[in-house]
């Protein structure tokens, strides 16, 4: 039953399927230590992440209201998104606008600040890291902006503007469609120095100072050359990591948006795909339709990630 020994295939003879399987099995046995390393995480990963995602893919082709068993509807959910759901199209437009701005800008901010902070002495560096990371560490820090941008005269910004006579009546910052998106984008950028920022700092710390000394001797003159020829190439794995975080966060940010402009924003001005999806999943019990949106968003993000990966290969 078990064919432990590696199967040697003769030259020029195509191995049969059976032989290939036997060969694979032999290889797997040879690497059983690797599988032991992976097993604890791998099993849990499969149960709590892979399986639910596969279920969602399946559900995206059904009508499922969580009470009756799912009914197969084919591509109907996908057609509905583009043909008969106007709000979804608004959400797509908003999500793209939001992601195109916050994704790259937050990514650059994370890197630039990590890079600048990295040169400081340890104590000062730890202190500044804390300050820059503060909006991410205080879980609902964006609430401070609610207070600042409150639409009535109690709002701090309105209060100041009125006091100095710049405006004569309060601006409804979070209800007026001209202001909503810019404010949401600004607040998101403000709290975007999170995971990637920490990763970049840790990554920069891992670069051996020796490389910089060698580069300086080899004729690297200023910090820009050093950045391009030494730092960026050494940072490539972390840059990829940061890019993926930037993509996922910019495409799926919801909590802060909702906290600022409320569960139903004026004229859907800050309504995003994930909000639309949550609405259908948790308020309307249309799991099939919500899953279809998740699947679509998934492919959009994978596409973005592949593009960015190509771009990053050219860096440094």
């Amino acid at each position: 039953m078990s064919t432990a020994a590696p199967v040697v295939t003769g030259t020029g003879v195509e191995p049969t399927f059976r032989e290939k399987m036997a060969d694979l099995w032999a290889q797997m046995k040879a690497h059983k230590v690797s599988y032991l390393f992976i097993a604890p995480f791998g099993i849990l990963f499969f149960i709590f992440t892979v399986l639910p995602i596969l279920v969602s893919f399946g559900l995206s082709f059904t009508y499922f209201n969580m009470v009756q068993p799912p009914q197969w509807v084919g591509w109907e959910n996908y057609l509905r998104m583009f043909l008969s759901d106007d709000v979804f199209l608004i959400a797509v437009k908003n999500t793209l606008l939001f992601a195109v701005i916050t994704g790259p800008v937050s990514y650059l901010l994370c890197f630039v600040f990590a890079w600048l902070i990295n040169e400081l002495k340890p104590k000062l560096r730890a202190f500044l890291t804390l300050l820059f990371y503060a909006p991410s560490i205080s879980a609902n820090a964006y609430l401070v902006w609610r207070f600042l941008f409150d639409g009535d005269t109690y709002g701090w910004i309105n209060g100041q503007l009125l006091y100095w006579g710049i405006i004569d009546r309060p601006i409804q910052w979070l209800i007026d469609t001209t202001w909503m998106m810019p404010i949401v984008i600004m607040v998101t950028l403000w709290m975007s120095l999170g995971v990637s920022f920490l990763t970049f700092i840790a990554g920069l710390q891992g670069i051996d100072p020796m490389y910089y000394e060698a580069a300086a001797i080899d004729g690297v003159k200023n910090r820009w050359q050093e950045l391009w020829f030494v730092t960026l190439p050494m940072m490539r794995p972390y840059l990829m990591f940061g890019a993926i975080i930037a993509i996922t966060q910019s495409f799926t940010a919801t909590q802060s948006i909702q906290a600022l402009t409320g569960p139903t924003p004026t004229d859907w001005a800050t309504w995003t795909i994930v909000q639309h999806m949550q609405d259908h999943a948790t308020a309307r019990y249309e799991m099939g339709y919500a899953s279809a949106m998740a699947v679509l968003l998934f492919f959009a993000m994978v596409f973005m990630q592949k593009m960015v990966q190509r771009l990053l290969k050219k860096v440094g």
Partner: peptide, 17 residues
């Protein structure tokens, strides 16, 4: 798989979870 799973929006996974 690990990379791809990061791209899946969590909201719909709540129910299967």
């Amino acid at each position: 798989l690990i990379l791809l799973s990061l791209m899946f929006a969590g909201a719909v996974l709540l129910i299967p979870h």
